[in-house]
Each structure stands twice: as C-alpha cells, then as structure tokens.
C-alpha cells in the first residue's frame, strides 16, 4: 500500500528498463545478430574453421585442468573456513578474494615476471627447454589465478549458513570424516557447488586480459576462444568474430539460466522443508 505515486513508478520502471536494455540486452542482441548477419551457413562455416576449432580445443583443455584444481581448492578452503573458527580467518578470506580485484593485465604480468625470458625462473627454464610463457602452461597458470576464488566464494556463505549440527550428528552416529563429508555435507551444498563450478568454467573459458598477456597469440597454437575473437575482430572479420563470440555468449546465458534454475530449485526445497 505504501508506495510511490503512479507517475514516479512509471518513471522508475522506464529508467530501469532503459538501463538494462541499453547495457545488457543491446550487447547480447549485437552478438547474436552479428553472428547470423551473413546467414546461417556462413555462421557454421565460421565455427568449423580450423583455427576456430583449434581455439575451442585449447580452451577446453585449459578448462579441463583449471576447473578440477580450483574446485578442489574451493571445497577444501570452504571446509576450513566455514566449519572452523581460527585466528587469521578474515585475513585468509581477504587473500582468497585478491584475484577478484587485481587487474587481469597485472595477473598476467606477474607470471611473465616469474617464467618469462627476463623472469626469475626464465634462464633456468630456457636451459631445460621448458616453455611456459607464450605457451599453454602459461595460459593455464594465468587462468587458475584469475578464477581462483569462485568456488570458495560460492560455498563459504552456504556452508556457514548450514552450521555444524548435521556433521556433528553424523559423527556421533559413528560416521567417519570422509563419509560424513560425502553423505552429509556434500548433499547440503550440492546446488551451490554446481553453480560455483559452472561459473568457474564460464570464467575460465572466457578469460581474456591475463591470457592475452601470457599467450603470445600464436594462431592455432596458443589462441583461446576469446583471443581468437580479438584477432578476427581486428582483421575486420566482424561476422567471424561474432560467430565465435556467440559460443561464449551462449555459455554465459547457459550459466545464468542454471543459476536461475538452482535458485528456483533451492526455494522449492526450502518450501517443502518448511511444510513438513
């Protein structure tokens, strides 16, 4: 009943829709519109281009390494932080958040300083003929750094909200540590975990700045999908750029839809729980 007058409401709605339309819907429409500008066959041709396929393959490889590692870290860190109270916890959480605020360019640069030709381990790596910078390992390292906090960030508040009661009950019933984790903790956090992994995957596949610094942009070898988009765009191949970009845009939309479904699902479960 207590609300703004109708004209004010209309103005606020218009401003909100305008803002969302301008900044969110226009870019999405531009990507998909641009991809299909030359018709569907051209789109398919662009996707099946050998360089595009190489970029997709490299991106998948990167994600295949990054996602499990950061997932393992995220779950472990969340367990330590959410389930125990210890000195230095706040500091630890701040440090985990670090990669969120560090510029991707700076993130890329620090790995160049470590492993690049002029870097600290550069001469040693050169002698042993190991290539990290301007090669796949560099891309993977930079991506791990950038996507480091996502799973932990998603799980910590969730696990804190759940409390320790259920785990403690399981322990008193004679369940071991691992068993308790897999049978009690994991089912409770499964939706948050799913979303965390999906977001982690989307960010890992889409990272541009940091990867751009360490990759060397060698077509067919060290080009991930976003880097390939950049190259196509800079060659004025707009349709090609948008076609490849639409793969990533699609991945982003799938991520958002998953988040919405999970939100809906958890609310549903909460209602059921309250009803019983």
């Amino acid at each position: 009943m207590i609300t703004e007058s109708a004209p004010v409401r209309r103005i606020l709605m218009t401003l909100a829709f305008g803002f969302v339309g301008l900044f969110l819907i226009v870019p999405l429409v531009t990507v998909f519109g641009g991809a299909l500008q030359g018709g569907f066959p051209l789109f398919i041709k662009n996707i099946r281009d050998p360089y595009t396929r190489a970029a997709i393959l490299l991106t998948l490889q990167t994600a295949a390494v990054v996602v499990p590692l950061n997932l393992l870290f995220g779950v472990t860190a969340a367990w330590a932080i959410a389930k125990f109270d210890f000195f230095g916890k706040r500091t630890l959480m701040t440090l985990i958040d670090l990669p969120f605020t560090v510029s991707p360019i700076v993130s890329g640069l620090i790995f160049v300083l470590l492993f690049g030709a002029q870097g600290i381990f550069g001469p040693w790596l050169m002698r042993h003929d190991i290539k990290i910078i301007f090669a796949v390992p560099g891309i993977i390292l930079a991506t791990i750094f950038i996507t480091f906090p996502y799973v932990a960030r998603e799980l910590i508040p969730l696990m804190q909200a759940q409390g320790n009661d259920q785990e403690e009950a399981a322990l008193t019933l004679g369940s071991g540590g691992w068993r308790t984790f897999f049978l009690v903790t994991l089912p409770n956090i499964r939706w948050g975990l799913v979303y965390g992994v999906i977001l982690l995957n989307a960010r890992a596949m889409g990272e541009f700045g940091a990867v751009s610094v360490v990759s060397g942009h060698i077509r067919g070898l060290t080009n991930t999908i976003p880097l390939h988009v950049e190259i196509l765009y800079n060659e004025y191949n707009l349709v090609g750029a948008f076609s490849v970009a639409s793969i990533l845009a699609f991945l982003a939309i799938a991520t958002l839809v998953t988040k919405m479904l999970i939100k809906w699902k958890t609310r549903q479960e909460m209602i059921l729980e309250e009803a019983s």
């Binding site: 541009f208 999908i225 976003p226 948008f242 970009a245 990533l248 845009a249 991945l251 958002l256």
Partner: peptide, 18 residues
C-alpha cells in the same frame, strides 16, 4: 537473471559487442 550477465559474459565478447 540478466543482471549477472557482465559476470558471466567474457569481457572480450562484451567489448566487441559494445
């Protein structure tokens, strides 16, 4: 749902689209 798009959409894609 769309509010989170900038979190999920790779920055390069956003860049060329904008």
């Amino acid at each position: 749902m769309l509010i989170d798009l900038p979190f999920a959409l790779p920055t390069a894609v956003a860049g060329i689209a904008l």
